[in-house]
Simulated scan of single mutants.
Amino acid sequence: MVNNSKLKKIAEELIGMSLSKFSSSQLKLKNHSKNNRLYYFIANDNKEYALKSYSKDKLHETKRLDVEFESLNYLFNYGKFNIPRPIARNNKENCGIYSWINGEKVNNICEKDVHQVVNFISNLFEVSRKKESYNLPNAKEACFSADVMVRQIFSRYNLLNKVSPFYNDLAEFLRDDFEPLLTPLVNITKKKYKYLNLNFNTEIPHEYKILSPSDFGFHNSIRNLNGELYFIDFEYFGWDDPAKLVGDFLLHPAIEDINFKLNEWKLFYKFIKKIFDFDNEFHSRLLLNLPLLSMRWSLILLNEFLPNNWERRVFSGEKKSRATVLKNQLKKARKYTRLVRWSINSDEKNFLSENYIDNFYLKSFN
């Protein structure tokens, strides 16, 4: 692990001048990442910067640094986005320097915030249509078909199942909460796809795809002094299905800590449908995949049961004991399996209605 004095020296070398202040950003902005450490510094040019130190392990190495730095650079060159500006990077030490965004974590959502998020997604879609974008990589765990999403769910399940003999509460969750839902959900989803004459296994055409931050939402935004939202964390950026981008935005666990009311949810959904109205299957694909995404999130929340993931969380500064964290994550995971159970038991005829999406919101926040 690189210590603070060495990181300060790296920062000075990268920007070519000495620093007047260098400290952990947690003192300045409570926007905690589970994968990285963030530092705030002021250089002798009186400008504010962020130094992001990425956790390093055999699975990720320097890729997250490269993806974030290059994607932000691309968006700066080809669009107008409220994002940090990439300044410099050191691949050997796995850290990057970005412009500092002064502001606060977003807690209460208003109509203006919804418009800003929708505009950001709309701008992403516009940039996605540029010919320069076509050779960019896929987002991490992109899902271009329901079949791919199901295979990802099984892959995550298998990883957790391997370590479940060492954790009785995890084994109980998988046996009693997760496994009884998986096969019925997949079968019902396939049935609904067939009913709508959609292909469960076929990848969506490229013209329907979008460049996605992949971990996009109010939880990864900062409200500056003028009320503008800036969006951060592009470590998993790349091509994805916009239905997955929107579904993850609506279902992200961090939304529990944000006052995102039903009226704002409905407004967001109304505008999003307009952006993608050229894709006749977008609306159906989103609603059909919400339960699958919920199952996926129930497993993502349990990443800390896996050794590498816990090490990254410790690297980022986690202070709670592992036992406490695992207990809390299991509680959150059960919320998603309850949501899936409700969707399986709901009236199949109403799964494309406005009431369905409203109820999905209401159930997901209870």
Rank of each mutant, 00 (worst) to 15 (best):
N161E: 03
L330D: 00
T183D: 09
I210D: 08
K266N: 13
S284P: 12
K47G: 07
A43D: 05
R151M: 11
Y208G: 04
N226Y: 10
L185Q: 03
L185R: 02
R129F: 07
N263H: 13
S284Q: 07
A142Q: 06
L182F: 03
S221C: 08
N280T: 15
F276I: 06
S128Q: 00
L251G: 04
K140W: 12
V314G: 06
Q152P: 08
F69M: 06
L211C: 01
A142T: 09
E281A: 12
Q26R: 12
L286A: 07
R223G: 08
I210W: 04
L262V: 10
Y40M: 08
D358L: 15
S353V: 02
G247L: 01
K21M: 13
D240Y: 02
F315V: 00
F120Q: 05
R175H: 08
K80A: 11
L262G: 09
E93Q: 14
A50Q: 04
L136Y: 04
L75I: 02
L27H: 15
F76C: 15
Y193M: 04
F69Q: 06
S5K: 09
I101C: 10
F178T: 00
L196K: 14
F351L: 11
L160R: 01
K58T: 14
R338H: 15
P213N: 07
D113I: 04
L185N: 03
F305G: 00
F81Q: 06
R175I: 13
K92D: 14
Y208D: 06
D358R: 12
L19H: 08
S212G: 03
D215N: 05
K47L: 10
S71M: 01
Y208I: 03
F178K: 00
K52G: 03
K209C: 03
N350T: 12
R334W: 00
V127G: 01
A254C: 13
S122L: 06
N350E: 12
K194D: 11
N135A: 13
D241N: 13
K261E: 11
E348T: 10
L14Q: 08
N119H: 11
N135L: 12
L339F: 05
E48H: 14
I222C: 02
S25Q: 14
E348H: 11
S24F: 06
K140A: 15
R312C: 09
S23Y: 11
Y78C: 07
A88T: 10
N161L: 00
L229F: 02
L196E: 07
V127W: 08
I10V: 10
F365H: 13
F282D: 05
R156I: 01
E235D: 06
A333C: 01
A254F: 15
I87E: 15
F81D: 06
F305W: 00
L51Q: 05
D240Q: 08
L229N: 03
E264S: 05
N308E: 08
Y49S: 04
A50F: 12
